[in-house]
Amino acid sequence: MGPKRHTDIFWRVEKQRETQALEGVERGDDCSEIGTVTLISGGQMHQLNLIGGMIWNLCDGQHSIEEISSELALEFEADSEELIDDVRGFVSDLQARGWIDDE
């Protein structure tokens, strides 16, 4: 069992913007302000950037924090051990917002 998105939240991937962000990352651009996942919680709209959106996508209850970190490491050619704290921190923030069910 891993972190799982709250079922009440409407969300979707912004595919064109995700492609734009991935191409930007490839070029070495700062793409942290490009929203690639849009969600609505409590009547308010929010967006997550590329990395946040990828983590969100993997919060399906099937991936542990370690597995999410490994997936990101693979995508961005980074060391998964170095990513674990960031992923854990981001998931804690999602939990604090009530967007992720408590484990």
């Binding site: 912004e14 595919k15 913007r17 929203g35």
Partner: peptide
């Protein structure tokens, strides 16, 4: 993100 942009 203060001014979200969306595909649709």
């Amino acid at each position: 993100m203060s001014n979200p942009q969306v595909d649709t």
